[in-house]
Design a protein around this nucleic acid. Structure first.
Lengths: 372, 372
DNA sequence: TTGTATGCGTTATCAA
DNA sequence: TTGATAACGCATACAA
């Protein structure tokens, strides 16, 4: 930059090469530039190459709006300086980000690892990235997260369910960005939603057990969140309609769901109702725990006890005997939620405000009782 | 403050209250202010309350540095305007963020859901938040993520393993923020590391099987990443030392790991080596899939076949027969990695650059063979 | 204790 | 097509 005038710095790049091929490879120091962070800025690469910051910005943003030669030179300068765009500055100046906030109630729960996989796959190759929040099944935590995420002016927000507090609800409705609710079918979506009816899905499981001839069907559940309650409602309605419901068939706890807990709940049920002949579990972890417990007690599946899980994890089809489960489309929900979010963030009108991905009963050996 | 002079805008606040109690509750419009985003800014709440922007900033940042009365008034003004701090502006102005980048090779793999749980727990209550990246077992993707994350000038970066490309490695070493490598024990840590020796842990599993009298011990593995290879090395070394190694005992695939795949690999092993008498699995999903497959084939566990898993997931202790596994401290690694990252981000010297969380052999029924 | 002025690195507007 | 310049919203020396 010594003799920079209108711009006769054709030598600039030359000097770089003369002095040594890698000019400031660490990007740590350089000249006195970037006094604060020490990292090279847009102006640094502009200075290094002898063009204006705007040009560099354009090359990075919309390369086609710049002449080919300029583009080349800018790219080289970017490489040489080891420049990395500053996200914060970009967000501030353009008043928008490429961040999509995703808030789930748990990362432990395998249910959500499938959802997250869908999220990552949908994001891959797009210009967007996700910011995850773990609400840990707490409304307070969820509220903090929504507030936190909204402060980043995200391109969109994906939240789980619809049993938000009024505060959360009003924040979401005033979010100023597209909001996608997943997992459920909210009666009054904030913006868009993709999910399924947990009550209906559980009812299908209950009906299946009844059709297979089971009569004293327990409902085993942990982590009593809203979707669990919806499933329980579906179960109760179905058994009641069949004249089979009895309070003592409900075995629930607020503890977080796990395989070990499934075994425990199963034990409790069997001791409480030695005549019990089937189990509808709130999820597959509980179900397989119950299955293991039955095996341990040498209770025959499916003849003495029928078991139906929920979600249809990978292992349900592999366990011996294979386990009946209600299949849910978790991956698809994550994936499509992001697709919807991105489309909306880019101004497209939603194709649908409410998407029902449905469910499917996957009948296997664990409920294949010989008709009595 | 009514009689404020040096700056007689004592009426400002007054007018707000006169006109109506909730001044611009939605924060959407107001006067011509904030022409760009439309959201209320620090200046907006300052104007609304009649104090200076810096005072508001201080109340939000270090409340104790402001008089109690001011604090009260500022809080009210913040409430009334519905102000939410702009993260980007804050990051830009202060040249630092509260974001810790976390890059893992998979979110599907249950291994990492435990790590993530530790990460979330460690973050909870701190002033930091995580930004996750899923490298999907791809170095290319990992490189993109590191570059992307570094652009946010994160407070710290947590990455998985140490088999990075040279490009990644040099970026990490020039990151300008604390870097924590997890899961492994790198010979030359970039900065700090917390993990375990996968070779030793797998060797312990192999030794256990040998001690229990098994002789034709297979190694079943999928997703041949670096840690899987390390475990395989430990297995090979142990069997070789015992004079038991044979190439045909290795049953591996590059497909992603799953329970179903475990069953498949087990089938392959049993048909390839009908005399095989034990399985050391690269992880519990593979192991339990193998266990299910044995049950399906009515191969007795542990008498005909012994099975030892790796990681010790929740279900290993519950399955019938209960499954021996090498216990790893995944939650602890996630949790302590973040603790280390935060401490370093706040300038504390690391207590240790390399932390070995070790492993533990959890012997259960699946390897309890009667000595022959 | 509180207010003023400046700069953070980028984008966007306008002029050339 | 390229360059100069003014925001963007906040933090922070510095002044009062």
């Amino acid at each position: 930059m010594e003799t920079r005038r209108t711009r006769d710095l054709a030598e600039q790049p030359r000097r770089q090469n003369a002095d040594g091929k890698d000019v400031d490879p660490t990007g740590s120091t350089g000249r006195g530039q970037g006094r604060k962070t020490g990292k090279p800025t847009l102006s640094d690469v502009a200075a290094a190459g002898g063009f204006s910051p705007s040009t560099v910005s354009r090359v990075l943003r919309r390369p086609e709006s710049v002449s080919a030669t300029m583009r080349q030179r800018v790219w080289r300068a970017v490489e040489e300086t080891g420049y990395v765009p500053n996200t914060a500055a970009r967000a501030l100046a353009s008043a928008r980000t490429n961040v999509i906030g995703v808030i789930v109630p748990s990362v432990t729960n395998s249910v959500f690892s499938d959802v997250l996989r869908g999220v990552f796959d949908a994001l891959d190759g797009s210009a967007y990235q996700a910011q995850f929040g773990n609400a840990n099944y707490s409304h307070l935590k969820e509220e903090q997260l929504v507030r936190l995420f909204l402060g980043q002016h995200p391109a969109a927000l994906v939240v789980t369910g619809h049993d938000h507090t009024p505060a959360i609800d009003s924040m979401l409705r005033a979010a100023g960005c597209p909001v996608v609710q997943i997992m459920d079918l909210p009666p009054d979506p904030v913006d868009m939603a993709i999910g399924l009816s947990h009550a209906e899905a559980a009812a299908a499981g209950a009906r299946h057990l009844i059709e297979r001839g089971y009569r004293r069907i327990a409902f085993l559940a942990a982590q009593m969140d809203m979707r669990t309650r919806a499933r329980m409602d579906g179960y109760i309605a179905t058994l009641t309609a069949a004249g089979l419901f009895d309070e003592r068939l409900l075995v629930t706890t607020h503890k977080p769901s796990s395989v070990a807990l499934g075994a425990q709940l199963c034990s409790e049920f069997l001791s409480r109702r030695p005549d019990g002949d089937a189990i509808l579990a709130n999820n597959d972890d509980i179900a397989i725990g119950a299955l293991f417990e039955c095996q341990r007690r040498r209770v025959a599946i499916p003849d003495q006890i029928g078991i139906c899980g929920f979600n249809d994890f990978d292992y349900a089809a592999c366990v011996h005997p294979s386990m009946t489960s209600v299949t849910t489309r978790r991956y698809e929900m994550g994936r499509r939620a992001i697709d919807m979010a991105i489309a909306a963030a880019e101004g497209q009108a939603p194709k649908a405000r409410l998407v029902d991905v449905g469910y499917q009963l996957s009948a296997r050996e664990s409920t294949a009782r010989r008709r009595t």
